[in-house]
Design a protein around this nucleic acid. Structure first.
Length: 440
RNA sequence: CGGGGUAUAGCGCAGUCUGGUAGCGCAUCUGCUUUGGGAGCAGAGGGUCGCAGGUUCGAAUCCUGCUGCCCCGACCA
């Protein structure tokens, strides 16, 4: 993409309403624009990141055996009356009426709807297990939205729903999502730790929040240091290996890890002092087994091998991609701006023409741009008629992993400069070698 | 939902106390000179001062009501 033809409204100064670093940088980098309190437009650069986050989530959901569909944002109030949540949900639910005065709502989540879809078609245990997910915008009319897309009213969510014949099956479904989440967050470049979450009236131990460690995180977390070095399950993990998956989950739940709400000071103190981690974190995912909470009132039943009806056991598994974008920035930035993890960077390389109008520099840039693009590298070519300083600052704030700088001085010696955003390391090398390095 | 702020040009702000017809920096546009970490000079454009009433010869400024947004707390992917 040529920057001169792109839409990238960089802000030189920080808008005063932005309090936390991810919000400030997302505004400065031209990723989002606030349209109302807690409601944001995703500008081109932000959308590229959001889409990359979603792509990774999809791949890992699919790998674990979950199946994608897409449910609407607008739901009928009657559906929610079946589960009793229409009255229970409160003012966080945005309720609306259509032209026929029918009561509708903008979905804050989709348990009722997925249960309705399931019960309409599935009759036999032979169709189980089943895990259906979608990526869709949700709306929760929070009293006080804040921190940009970190806590917005409208937000994107990946929500998966599992259906099993019994609790044992549901546990395996839960474990598969647990493993998929470990893989997902690692690929997104985030260090996540599953922490025991409150299961409310359902009880049991099948609820975990996935917390990303970031010094600016919203909540206080406590865990055993060994978690930081645990190996994440590999891509060829066999998700049908019930014992194997269980072993992985057992390992990742063997040590102490809790948010302040679930904190047990005695258990934490039992950890050797040099292994204790007290830090801050951001919740980016939540997995939950809730048994027959919805299948019971909504009559989602299948015939079992015993010829009898069984109410299915369900679980739901959420990741907030829009929040993940903000969390990634909280976890990875510096004074200059964002430092994107490679997998979710909006572009891989910023190609900086440091002397726009110089025929040799222009030609070298055009050649590099063509060669990199031809090899499938996402390049943002800064071909604006700007001074070098401005181009450096722009590249730094939007945080692309690599900066490839072409100026008259080094080019006279047949060299261009490649800078790694994260470390600041610079290297002078020939254009041919630069392309080789970026396509390796 | 309680408490506290705030609203003036695209962004950041001054002007409001003490009423007299709107200003600064950055950004934008034109020209020339510049060009490896946010350049210089010259010129230009851009604001019904959040909205609605009221007081006054005259309101960004005083009064009343409303709305948006932000921050702190209780609540949340």
């Amino acid at each position: 993409m040529r920057l001169s033809r792109y839409f990238l409204p960089i802000l030189r100064e920080t808008p005063k309403e932005a309090e936390i670093v991810s919000h400030r940088l997302m505004l400065r980098a031209g990723m989002i624009r606030q349209e109302s309190a807690g409601i944001y437009a995703w500008l081109p650069l932000g959308l590229r990141v959001l889409n990359k986050v979603c792509a990774v989530i999809r791949e890992e959901q699919n790998r674990s055996g979950a199946i994608e569909l897409l449910m609407p944002t607008i739901q009928s109030a009657d559906l929610w009356r079946e589960s009793g949540r229409y009255d229970a949900y409160g003012k966080e639910m945005l309720r609306i009426k259509d032209r026929h005065e029918r009561e509708m709502l903008f979905g804050p989540t989709n348990e009722e709807m997925i249960t309705e879809i399931f019960r309409a078609y599935v009759r036999s245990y032979k169709d189980l297990p089943l895990n259906l997910y979608h990526l869709q915008w949700k709306f929760r009319d929070e009293v006080r939205p804040r921190f940009g897309v970190m806590r917005s009213r409208e937000f994107l969510m990946k929500d998966a729903y599992s259906f099993d014949l019994d609790q044992a099956g549901a546990r395996h479904a839960y474990n598969k999502m647990f493993v998929a989440y470990l893989r997902t967050f690692q690929r997104l470049g985030l260090k996540s730790i599953p922490m025991r979450a409150d299961t409310g009236p359902i009880g049991g131990d099948l609820s975990h929040e996935f917390i990303v460690l970031a010094s600016t995180g919203e909540s206080e977390v406590f865990c055993h240091k060994d978690y930081l070095d645990f190996a994440v399950p590999p891509a060829d993990t066999n998700f049908d290996d019930i014992a194997g998956i269980q072993a992985t989950v057992d390992k990742w739940t063997s040590l102490y890890a809790a948010t302040s709400e679930m904190h047990d000071a005695a258990a934490y103190d039992a950890i050797p002092a040099d292994r204790r981690v007290s830090a801050r974190g951001i919740e980016v995912g939540h997995i939950f087994y809730f048994g027959t909470k919805y299948s019971e009132p909504m009559r989602a039943v299948v015939n079992g091998p015993d010829g009898k009806e069984h109410t299915v056991h369900m679980g739901s598994y959420g990741i907030g991609p829009s929040r993940v974008v903000a969390a990634a920035i909280e976890a990875s930035h510096d004074e200059q701006g964002i430092v994107w993890p490679d997998e979710i960077a909006p572009f891989k390389v910023a190609l900086l023409n440091l002397r726009q109008g110089d025929s040799a520099v222009d030609a070298a840039c055009a050649d590099l741009y063509a060669k990199l693009s031809a090899k499938g590298v996402d390049v943002l070519y800064d071909d604006r008629d700007e001074r070098p300083g401005g181009k450096f600052a722009t590249a730094d704030v939007i945080g692309l992993p690599w900066q490839l700088m072409v100026g008259p001085k080094s080019l006279a010696e047949g060299k261009v400069e490649l800078k790694r955003r994260a470390t600041g390391e610079r290297e002078l090398l020939s254009p041919v070698d630069a392309v080789a390095r970026l396509t390796a």
